[in-house]
């Protein structure tokens, strides 16, 4: 029973991070139809920004905020400068572009931050909390992870549902031509979409790094899990991304806990194949848009 509970808690924490990462992918896919493979090295880069700030003697929280803000800026700049020229062109252009960005950011990070493992602090204890005398697999940082991802998600929902900017972002994502006709500055909305996605990705990067080691490639496996989670949810649905992330986190945790940790990556791919075979549109597939 205790092992079950602990495995579930580990899966929940991990699933939250995958959910955040998947959400970053979905935000970009929805508005620009681009799968942003560079999301992983982008998040890695901003985590290193946090590390530089912390190593300079500032607090963890200042580093945390610096990483999120630099994520916002990095996303906006990349969309404006690098991605804008391929928007609306053949899909393969964008795929190759984001893969290229992946390699470039990796290379730059190795040059600037060093190609070695460095430890990254956590703001809260990593000791498991004890409940009724037993120690459970949920620590202060785990709670922080869950709360911060939920908070960011709630803010995003509020932005999209209840603000005018969110309304115009949704309109731009659904139909750029019509949105333009209605006076929406579609270009700015796409930039903002990339910036927000990059911010959410940065959060995932910080949460993975907390209390662990960072290296220019430390996020690379997460992009695979985040992608699987996003596809699970249907790539188009933010809610789907969150549920996909949680399902994947829990499944992988149980595989790791009860079958064998070496099978985790394999299990992720099996889940991906099952979903693509049984429900190609993802668990939250919406009916294809009707073209009148």
């Amino acid at each position: 029973m205790q092992q079950f509970l602990n495995t579930a808690l580990t899966g929940l924490t991990l699933g939250m991070v995958y959910a955040a990462f998947a959400l970053a992918l979905v935000l970009i896919w929805r508005s620009t139809r681009i799968v942003n493979f560079a999301q992983a090295p982008m998040a890695m880069t901003t985590t290193f920004v946090a590390l530089v700030v912390i190593d300079a003697g500032f607090s963890y929280w200042l580093g945390f905020v610096a990483a999120l803000l630099s994520g916002l800026v990095l996303g906006a700049v990349l969309e404006r400068v690098v991605v804008r020229p391929v928007e609306g062109k053949a899909e393969i252009n964008a795929v190759i572009l984001t893969l290229g960005l992946f390699i470039v950011l990796h290379g730059l990070a190795a040059v600037v931050f060093g190609n070695r493992y460095r430890s990254f602090p956590a703001p809260f204890g990593l000791e498991g909390l004890s409940v009724g005398g037993t120690t459970i697999a949920l620590n202060g940082f785990g709670i922080f992870t869950i709360v911060s991802v939920l908070l960011v998600m709630a803010l995003l929902v509020a932005l999209f549902r209840f603000t005018d900017v969110g309304l115009r972002m949704r309109a731009s994502a659904f139909n750029q031509e019509v949105a333009r006709l209605l006076g929406v500055k579609v270009g700015s909305m796409l930039t903002l979409g990339w910036a927000l996605a990059s911010l959410v990705g940065s959060l995932a990067g910080l949460l993975i790094a907390g209390g662990s080691l960072v290296h220019p490639s430390y996020m690379d496996s997460v992009v695979v899990f985040g992608f699987v989670a996003a596809v699970l949810g249907g790539l188009d649905s933010p809610l789907g991304a969150v549920v996909g992330g949680l399902v994947l986190g829990l499944s992988l945790s149980f595989v790791s806990g009860y079958v064998g940790s070496q099978l985790v990556a394999l299990a992720a791919l099996v889940i991906l194949m099952l979903v693509l075979t049984l429900r190609p549109g993802g668990l939250f597939a919406q009916a294809p848009e009707r073209r009148v």
């Binding site: 309304l167 659904f174 073209r291």
Partner: peptide, 10 residues
């Protein structure tokens, strides 16, 4: 627009 161009999911 002839095709109306309504945002289906809004």
């Amino acid at each position: 627009l002839q095709g109306l161009g309504l945002f289906d999911r809004m």
